[in-house]
Design a protein around this nucleic acid. Structure first.
Lengths: 151, 151
DNA sequence: CCTTCCCGTAACTTTTCTTGTTGCGTATTT
DNA sequence: AAATACGCAACAAGAAAAGTTACGGGAAGG
């Protein structure tokens, strides 16, 4: 099964949007992600509904950030994407009445719950601004202009 | 995407096998999982290769446990199933050369790696015997015979 | 106005992954 | 030899995600 990369994609897009400052159309973004404007609208819809970006219709319209990157965490975006399941593995429900199966599933669910809580907690502590800073630290000195206009 | 429930299924099967003691055919197991004997063989193949179960061909053949439940951890089975990806979310590779994408993916990969390590560590500490004991503790007193040689 | 640009949404198609299925070979017991 | 089981390859079916097409509506600019 291939991984759901929407979170990664959206983070990528938001940081670029912040950097460029200008309005981005779905088509521009689609080009950046090698995908399709409709897919972009579909994915960004959640972020808009949660108030992280704004969309404007009509001539000159497009997408803009509704908040500074400092105020957006990875968890925020994860949730705005609909809290997709974090795990690829899960319980079986072949014999819901089988007590052995119930015991197995309960044990698995415990472990998964704990791991998920930890992951989401960590997502909640990282802002997009942190990622942008990471970017500078990792690549800023390697011949590229740094993220710029951070001021 | 639906969850991969092979781990759960195999744990379920192994505990039943221990309990019954007898040889189980792929068909019997398939019946228990509401699936198909070929699927069972496919899934059990990994466990056999790692020495957790044995298969015997021919008349009277079938599957048997090759080790006591005390010596099999959830991690063992997870690995025997081919170390399937634990997460449903992952990095995008739309623009592998984009440094922003790289930074985003690096941050995500860190968090995922950590959560996975924690989950697998926990899997490594739980044996199938623990699950069987869980079973007894949770359900044994509720009118059902306990796990051991209920024959 | 009215044309152009751009998002919103529904419906449909394509792709991809997993599971399920069929068929045949081979080993083992009776 | 007949019956029973696994091993394996190849194929079919099903489901989920992504991609696509099509059309409607709102906003800006000539």
């Amino acid at each position: 099964m291939r991984n759901d990369s929407r979170l990664s994609r959206m983070l990528h897009v938001l940081i670029h949007m912040d950097r460029q400052g200008e309005r981005a159309t779905s088509e521009t973004i689609a080009g950046m992600l090698n995908t399709n404007p409709v897919v972009v609208r579909r994915t960004m819809a959640g972020l808009r509904d949660q108030g992280y970006v704004r969309s404007e219709k009509g001539h000159g319209g497009g997408w803009t950030l509704a908040r500074p990157l400092e105020e957006i965490t990875l968890l925020d975006i994860h949730r705005a994407l609909g809290n997709p399941s974090v795990f690829a593995i899960g319980p079986a429900d072949d014999q819901p009445d089988c007590l052995v199966e119930q015991a197995v599933n309960a044990a698995l669910a415990d472990a998964l719950r704990e791991a998920e809580a930890m992951l989401l907690a960590r997502f909640g502590q990282v802002t997009l601004a942190d990622l942008a800073r990471d970017f500078d630290r990792r690549f800023g000195a390697s011949g590229r202009p740094p993220l710029q206009d951070e001021g």
